[in-house]
Simulated assay, not measured.
Amino acid sequence: MKEFRVDLHLHTCLSPCGSLEMSPQRIVETALERGLDAIAVTDHNSTLQGPEIQT
């Protein structure tokens, strides 16, 4: 069975608990640097960053 590296709980700067450094571009770049196969953005009360991250 193939194994996948994923992070299913990430917040962008739109979430109150997210930091200003957590832009969609930076999240994707960091995920790629760390060899992740998939990520999930789980912002609180917002889906506005969705189109920025989808590939």
Rank of each mutant, 00 (worst) to 15 (best):
D7I: 01
L32R: 12
L14W: 02
R5I: 03
L10Y: 06
P51I: 14
E3A: 12
P16L: 03
A40N: 06
L36W: 09
H11C: 08
T30S: 14
S15H: 01
L48F: 15
A31C: 07
L20S: 12
M22E: 08
G18T: 00
R26Y: 12
G35K: 12
L20F: 04
D37C: 01
N45V: 07
R34W: 10
L20R: 12
Q54L: 10
L14F: 07
D37L: 01
H44G: 03
H9D: 04
L20C: 11
R26F: 13
L32V: 13
H11R: 13
H11G: 07
R5C: 03
S19D: 09
P16G: 15
S23I: 02
V28I: 15
L48S: 14
V6D: 02
E52C: 09
S19I: 06
S15T: 03
T42E: 05
G50W: 14
N45D: 13
L36V: 05
E21C: 08
L14V: 02
S23T: 15
Q49V: 14
T55M: 09
K2F: 00
R26V: 11
S23Y: 13
N45C: 11
F4V: 01
R34G: 08
M22L: 14
E52R: 09
E3Q: 05
C17I: 06
L32C: 09
T30F: 11
V6S: 03
A40V: 15
E29R: 15
L32Q: 14
E3S: 05
I53Q: 04
Q54D: 02
H9F: 14
L10K: 05
Q54R: 10
S19N: 09
I39L: 15
T55A: 10
I27G: 00
F4T: 01
E29V: 06
R26C: 02
L20I: 13
L48D: 11
E3P: 01
N45S: 10
V6F: 11
I27C: 03
Q25T: 13
S15Y: 04
C17Q: 03
Q54Y: 15
T42L: 15
M22P: 00
I39Y: 12
P16K: 10
Q25P: 02
